[in-house]
Design a protein around this nucleic acid. Structure first.
Length: 432
RNA sequence: GUGGACGUAGCUCAGCUGGUAGAGCCCCGGAUUGUGAUUCCGGCCGUCGCGGGUUCGAGUCCCGUCGUCCACCCCA
């Protein structure tokens, strides 16, 4: 026996037994995006390393120490995407979709970050992304937040709270940065080690330090809001008004900042207290300079990303998921003639009822063993085919979940019979 | 990346102060030869995460390593 190959650190398998939660999330996601006129967009998982350096920022933690980057055999510098926005912006530019046009799209898929794993934080994880390009005003900020709110509500996640802030324009952010450095420098010796390191690299991050001593100092720090330029302030206030009008509760949190450099003006997070340290379930904001920074036409943008694993954990806590997709019918076949006929009969039934979910016993076994499998499959009905039935041209129909007696049915009528019993001809979507 | 807890059959776990491993569930088979989910009987499964050390002897002690989890960090 050779040694077992272990999965890589921080990646995980999603098994059939757990897939129902993912399917519920993904189905609901598609429905909600469709309701807002957002179209699905699929972009590559690998991109040029340069894309992420230029968009996320050279000195962010993601780019500095968390990217899976490599040089391929043709010597291209490649990175597994750590987030989706950069790739979507790149694709918008590559395909010439922003020439005066506006785009509202969404995307779903795996992302990669080489972090130390923890529950809710993995090296391969999945995000749902919403992005809108070409909209200047606060109406799109409101819409995209309302969209996230509706999705969370449709999922049944009511315990999440919306935190909101505005980072202002790059210019007002820069002036705020200077004020912060001035303020914190006076307390430099009292700051914790991490915050001291960030003082000149990224002083905004000191604001959300969890260090108690530092927090006391942060309490007296100047507010981002005070440094906001008038236009950003008006934009933010208009957004807040729209959220209030829509009945969305929010907290303005002046300490809310983002780890990716491309954000401007509006930033927001949906936060839960049910997941320990991994409390952010959805986060996003405006990135008005990003497209231009990537060589495209000046185009405002806004978007958010939702962590699917984190959402799935919340859904599992609530027991919300799509039901198991058990077969409707399990076909039991024992005996030489019966087994030879079984696959043929099954194909005929599937041909006649495309929505029928029919599982055929494989690998033989006596009737007892096959009925055990039929029961375990979750099927509602069993079709029983022995040489005796084949000889008489019938199939026995047994109700595995009720007390209807087993009955024989002519082989050519069984398809119609099942369709009636299972309601397959009523044109619904298979949910019953 | 830093600190800490944990790591025993596929799963959930027991195994006292060191003496070469157990239970339940699952799975497979049987209870007069064609019928499941209950019951009864029987069976399979582990180099006790991996490597080294201490010891006559280690799942049980020590060190290292890998992994999971918690907090920090970061972030979705």
């Amino acid at each position: 026996m050779s040694t077992i190959i272990e999965p890589l650190r921080g990646v995980h398998d999603i098994l059939p037994s757990g897939i129902g939660t993912w399917q519920f999330l993904e189905r609901t996601t598609r429905e909600v995006f469709a309701a807002y006129g957002y179209e699905e967009f699929r972009v590559p998982i690998i991109e040029q390393t340069q894309l992420f350096k230029r968009s996320i920022g050279d000195f962010t933690d993601i780019v500095e120490k968390e990217m899976f980057s490599f040089v391929d055999q043709g010597e291209d510098h490649i990175t597994l995407r750590p987030e989706a926005t950069a790739g979507i912006a790149r694709a918008m530019i590559s395909n010439g979709l922003l020439r005066g046009a506006r785009q509202r799209v969404w995307c779903m898929g795996p992302m990669f970050r080489r972090e130390r794993p923890q529950a809710g934080r993995y090296r391969q994880f999945h995000q749902i992304d919403a992005e809108a390009f070409g909209f200047e005003g606060p109406d799109v900020d409101a819409e995209i937040i309302l969209l996230s709110a509706r999705l969370l509500r449709r999922l049944g996640l009511t315990g999440v709270k919306l935190h909101l802030n505005s980072l202002g324009t790059p210019a007002s952010r820069a002036s705020y940065r200077e004020r912060l450095i001035g303020y914190f420098s006076a307390y430099e010796s009292q700051l914790d080690e991490d915050s001291r390191r960030r003082l000149h690299a990224n002083p905004l991050r000191i604001l959300d330090s969890k260090h108690p001593e530092t927090q006391r100092i942060v309490a007296g720090a100047p507010h981002l809001g005070e440094s906001l330029d008038p236009e950003s302030r008006a934009h933010f206030e208009a957004l807040c008004a729209r959220l209030r009008a829509a009945g969305i509760e929010y907290h303005v949190d002046h300490r809310l900042v983002r780890g990716l450099d491309y954000y401007t003006r509006t930033v927001f997070e949906w936060i839960t207290d049910s997941l320990g340290a991994q409390s952010t379930v959805c986060a996003g904001g405006r990135y008005d300079g990003l497209v231009e920074q990537l060589g495209g036409p000046p185009t405002p943008g806004i978007g958010w990303a939702m962590g699917q694993e984190r959402i799935v954990m919340l859904l599992e806590q609530l027991g919300r998921h799509d039901g198991l997709q058990s077969p409707d019918v399990f076909l039991v076949a024992s005996g030489e003639r019966a087994q030879a006929f079984a696959l043929e009969l099954a194909e005929r039934l599937r041909e006649g009822s495309p929505r029928l979910r029919l599982q055929v016993n494989l690998g033989g076994g006596n009737f007892k063993a096959q009925f055990k499998r039929a029961d375990k499959s979750g099927a509602r009905y069993a079709l029983v085919l022995g040489d005796e039935e084949v000889g008489r041209g019938v199939v026995a129909l047994k109700d595995l979940r009720g007390d209807q007696a087993q009955v024989d049915c002519p082989a050519e009528e069984i398809g119609g019979r099942l369709s009636v019993l299972l309601g397959l001809d009523e044109g619904n979507t298979g949910k019953s």
